[in-house]
């Protein structure tokens, strides 16, 4: 049973992960791409949590049998670290996307390339002071 469950877990997690990768690869808008990364992250965290969950009666890593339904601390720790990291990546990505918008006038890579909008405003040396 546990083997089947583990395959199920894997399938779900991978589907979400691949969906995220697909999003990053195909979307033109920077915000959507960032969402794709979050989706990817969700897939990974999902698998982490599913892996970390041990039912009553299953064997733990150290050989003992779990008395009750438990979660493995290692995977919790990993999930927390993963959430923090994904948040940080998103934050940096958003900041970059904002700068991109400031410089090129758009967050859409397609628009930038095809020049749908009018010519991008040039960044001036004075505009570099962007601390907040």
């Amino acid at each position: 049973m546990s083997q089947a469950l583990s395959y199920f877990n894997l399938t779900v997690a991978f589907t979400v992960f691949i969906a995220g990768v697909y999003m990053v690869a195909t979307e033109h808008n920077l915000l959507r791409k960032l969402m794709g990364i979050n989706l990817c992250g969700a897939g990974v965290l999902l698998l982490a949590i599913l892996t970390g969950f041990v039912r009553r009666g299953q064997q733990l890593a150290d050989g003992t049998v779990a008395g009750t339904n438990t979660v493995v601390p290692a995977m919790q720790w990993l999930a927390v670290a993963g959430i923090v990291a994904i948040t940080a990546i998103t934050a940096v990505g958003l900041a970059l996307a904002r700068s991109h918008k400031r410089v090129f006038g758009t967050m859409d890579l397609d628009e930038k390339r095809n020049g749908v909008k009018q010519a991008p405003p040039q960044s001036t040396p004075n505009a570099t002071e962007d601390r907040r």
Binding site: F17, G20, I37, C40, G43, V44, I89, G93
Partner: peptide, 16 residues
């Protein structure tokens, strides 16, 4: 960032 983040997550998935 996009490439780096995806690769990091792939590695994290591997770790899990």
């Amino acid at each position: 960032l996009f490439m780096g983040a995806l690769s990091s997550l792939a590695i994290l998935l591997g770790v899990v």
